[in-house]
Simulated scan of single mutants.
Amino acid sequence: MLDILAITTPIFLIIGLGYLARAGDIIDQAPLQGVGTFVLYFALPALVIRALTQNPLSEVFNPHYLLAYGVGSLATFCIGLILAVGLQKKPLGTGAIQALGMSASNSGFIGYPVAAMALGPPAAVFLALNMMIENLLIIPLALILAELGQQAGNGLREALHQTLQRLIRNPVLIGLTIGGAIAASGLDLPAPLTRVIDMLASAAGPAALFVIGGSLYGLRPRGMVRDIGQITLGKLVLHPLAVLGVLLFLPQADSTLITGALLFACAPMISIYPLLGHRFGLDDIATASLMVSTLTAFVTISLTLWLVRHLSVFAVS
């Protein structure tokens, strides 16, 4: 168990440093947001570009991984939506945002650092594939449904237009496009540019974790125990089980692929979840769910790593 904690403890210690920096007034909210902007607009796109250009595109583009992680995430989203809208009779917008929290992982800020320590270089490839699923499938689907729930008069066309506008400006998708184009062309980047990309990509993990910790400072869950518990259990338990269930039915899935997908699915929800929730009047539940799931993830990720060490279908030894 100590070797498992050797992987997870540094991750959450950096999160703790970010929290203490805010609690001790070492860094204010505005500079912290600046670090988050740096990660989102520069470090993460560089990490995706590096993942796509360091290996042949045929090795990066893994249809089995995309199928398994995509189907597992979509199944989790649908279950969350049915539970909120169909059984609990909540509005469509509320159900879509809650389902988003259950099915979209914080792949860049938490999933990648954990997977990188457990698996090494393959984690960057899995990150690029996850970004495709989250940014092209799960997040747009949730936003379209949430917009439909609020814009009954404008309908699907307006919801699609607004979602497309956000996708065009998404820095991670821009990184995916650039990296994919470079990889498809077969061109080698100049050495100075490669070094710049490496430096930015290397900063993504620790900087992102520090931002997560600072963002947790001041969050207080208030009177939403059932919804918070539902979203947290959906994200940390249902989502990994759904992804794992699909993977185990694919004969082409090797142990590294299974381990990577499972570790990314075990991450808490995306860090911008409170921002998306705020747009639809759910900022309190979104921020509280982010806090609870991030803290709980220390236990669930450590447990998952312990399990994969003791099951032969996984790659961590």
Rank of each mutant, 00 (worst) to 15 (best):
P113F: 03
L129N: 11
I133V: 15
R195H: 12
M199T: 10
I197Y: 09
G223H: 13
P221K: 03
L189M: 10
Q150R: 13
I144S: 02
H161N: 08
M117S: 12
L145Y: 09
A181Q: 10
E158R: 14
G175C: 04
L176Q: 07
A191D: 12
L136T: 14
V196A: 14
E158V: 13
P192N: 02
A115E: 06
R222M: 10
G120K: 05
G179P: 05
G153W: 11
A152L: 14
L219M: 13
S215P: 03
R226M: 11
G186N: 11
V114Q: 10
G223V: 09
A159M: 06
L148D: 00
P192V: 08
V172H: 11
L119T: 05
A201H: 04
A191G: 07
A118L: 09
L187I: 15
L156C: 09
L209R: 06
I182F: 05
D227L: 11
A208S: 14
L167Q: 14
I139L: 13
G214F: 09
I174K: 05
P122R: 08
G180R: 01
F126S: 08
I168A: 13
G153D: 13
I182S: 07
I212S: 03
D198G: 10
A183W: 01
T177A: 15
L219Y: 09
V196L: 13
I182C: 04
A123T: 02
P171W: 09
R169P: 08
A159S: 14
L164D: 08
P140G: 03
I212K: 04
G205K: 02
R169T: 15
Q165W: 14
L127H: 00
Q151T: 15
A124C: 11
L145P: 02
P206C: 06
E147F: 08
G179L: 05
L156N: 05
L143V: 13
A207W: 00
S215I: 09
G111W: 03
H161W: 11
M117I: 10
L145I: 05
L119R: 02
L209C: 11
L216G: 07
A115H: 03
R169L: 15
L216V: 07
P221F: 02
G218P: 07
G213N: 04
A116C: 10
V114K: 09
P171C: 09
L143E: 02
P221W: 00
R226L: 15
L189K: 05
R166H: 14
F126E: 06
Y217C: 11
G214W: 07
